[in-house]
């Protein structure tokens, strides 16, 4: 079991590194997908090895996939809108929502 959990932890750390270091907003969204996948691996691993009654972990995995699809849709729509207004999608450039 711990091999799968270590794999998920390293994948989550890679995604976190990408979220922090990317300037391109699409790169940030792709790194977020990596973090979602690490979470799903954890759910499925615990479902197999630690709580095998019912398939609750796999159900949560399905719900996470659906939520990630919705998040990618809205995120990419926002990226296109920002690109149309600013002619660029570097996350350093549009900081007007900071106060």
């Amino acid at each position: 079991m711990q091999y799968y959990l270590i794999l998920a932890a390293i994948l989550f750390a890679i995604g976190l590194f990408g979220v922090i270091t990317r300037r391109n907003t699409i790169g940030i969204l792709m790194s977020l997908e990596l973090m979602f996948n690490a979470a799903i691996i954890n759910f499925v691993t615990f479902n197999k090895y630690s709580l095998a009654e019912g398939l609750t972990g796999q159900m949560f995995g399905i719900f996470i996939i659906v939520i990630a699809a919705a998040e990618a849709t809205v995120g990419l729509a926002i990226v296109l809108l920002i690109y149309r207004n600013w002619r660029g999608i570097d996350s350093d450039n549009y900081s007007i929502m900071k106060w």
Partner: peptide
């Protein structure tokens, strides 16, 4: 990467996932 994660799911008996 995501295809590899799908293979991990197969190893974990989560074929539908």
């Amino acid at each position: 990467c995501l295809t590899g994660v799908a293979g991990i799911f197969v190893l974990l008996n989560a074929e539908f996932l």
